[in-house]
Amino acid sequence: MKQDIEGANNYHQKKRVVIVAMTRLLLLDFAGPADVFNYATRCLQETGAGEGYEVLVVAPTSDKLVAIASGIEIRCKLSAMEVGLPIDTLIIAGNDFSEDTAAALVPFYQWLSTVNEGNTRRIASVCGGAFALAKAGLLNGRKATTHWDLNEKLKKSYPQVNVNTDPFFTNDGNIYTSAGVSAGIDLALALVEEDYGKDIAVKVARQLVFYLSRPGLQSQFGNLLPVYERSNIANKLQEWLKDHLHEPLDVSSIAAHLNMSVRNLTRVFQKQTGMSPAKFVEKTRVENARRLLEDTDIPLERISEQCGLGGLVCMRRIFLRHLMTTPSDYRRAFRTSLKHAETEHLLS
């Protein structure tokens, strides 16, 4: 079997990439990586640098039908269970977590349980596809990532997996996992670079108008604070905080507002939110600053004052700690797109 895989990985033979379209939500989960590998093949064959990839997009169910929420239905040529081993690269793309399809997916998980490093050189996932790998036991004791919004769910469902949702993609041995949706393109480009070098990968990235190595981390996209239940003490505090962020808030002033002792506030807050009142206030300040950076042209110094972030130097340090980026870089990346387009038009 090992000899078969080594033969399949010969530089001048096509590498079989099997993409299982698990998602019923987002076409890009599997279409993005498929486009990367297909365009890489075109580049390689044009230059005579290699044969590239044989890309198979397959369904996880025997009916071979993938129905996307946008109304698109795709009938694949094969189901995953009809794909013979060995495979060069297997990618599980997305996961809609629907209980309606659980029974239909039993044969798929039986097939996935036969996949290992002896018959598949690389095993990967996009977004919620990490849950499929975890369910099959392929992530046990390994580090993995997924969409930032699925972070806690993956940790709770599979505590034996070392979950880190900061990077857009990561690998542990022959297992590769990537974050949400477009991160599947990041991962696919990295796999092309691994196979055929930077020049080919850069050429593909340029054609797709995409970074070869995207700056930033997932933390820039996710919310620092979850949505709390109405009865949660944090929910009771949030509205009041919006009008008082510019003030020098401490635990005593918060406790006084809630008619609680400092000791009781600290105990209840930690129990209900998993963080201290001071940490909650800091994250609230950052979240409000983010919105102002995205939606307004207010100068950074004024935003720092309005949100109580203690000046530009302190604001920069806090942003780096929570979002792994500076306020100015965050504004460039996430400012309202229509506003940005309008500014570009006026400058042209």
Rank of each mutant, 00 (worst) to 15 (best):
D199K: 09
K64S: 04
V18N: 02
S70F: 03
E344D: 10
I74P: 03
I303R: 03
Q238F: 05
F108C: 06
L320G: 00
A132N: 09
T273F: 14
M22G: 14
G32N: 08
T120F: 15
A49Y: 13
A179K: 01
C314P: 00
Q306Y: 13
L312W: 00
H322I: 02
A67V: 14
E99Q: 12
L189R: 04
N151E: 12
L241G: 03
P299V: 05
V17K: 01
S213D: 15
D166W: 15
Y330E: 00
Y158N: 05
V209G: 00
F319E: 00
Q272T: 08
K153F: 09
A201S: 10
R75P: 04
V17R: 01
L27F: 05
V227R: 08
R317G: 06
D4G: 06
V66H: 06
P277G: 11
R122A: 04
E51P: 09
I92F: 06
L208A: 12
V106L: 12
I19L: 14
M1W: 15
N9R: 08
I318H: 01
Y11T: 11
T101I: 14
T266I: 02
Q160C: 07
N162S: 13
S276D: 05
Y228F: 15
D195N: 12
V313R: 09
G52R: 02
H246G: 09
T343F: 15
G94T: 05
K14A: 13
G274T: 05
S157D: 13
G197Q: 07
T284A: 15
D63I: 11
A93W: 05
E301N: 09
L245I: 04
K64Q: 14
L85P: 00
L293M: 06
L90G: 04
L320R: 10
S348E: 10
D63K: 06
Q13H: 13
T343R: 10
E305F: 12
A205G: 08
L105G: 02
K64T: 06
N171G: 03
Y11C: 01
L245M: 04
L258S: 01
S261L: 02
C43K: 13
R331Y: 05
S261Q: 07
K135Y: 12
R142N: 10
R331S: 09
A102M: 06
S304Y: 01
C43W: 10
S219F: 11
E294S: 08
A59T: 08
D29Y: 07
P159N: 07
M22Q: 07
G71K: 08
A103V: 14
T273P: 08
C307R: 01
P107D: 05
D243K: 12
V17N: 04
L312F: 07
D195P: 05
L241Q: 00
A179V: 07
L300I: 14
K242D: 04
G52H: 09
V66R: 07
A103P: 00
V18L: 02
K339N: 14
H244K: 12
G173I: 07
C76F: 07
I72S: 12
T170P: 10
K242R: 10
R332V: 13
N164H: 11
E344P: 00
S98R: 06
R24K: 13
W111N: 04
E294W: 03
L338Y: 15
K15N: 02
E344T: 14
N38V: 04
N95L: 11
A102R: 12
D35A: 12
A333Y: 11
L139S: 13
Q207K: 11
A205K: 03
N9G: 07
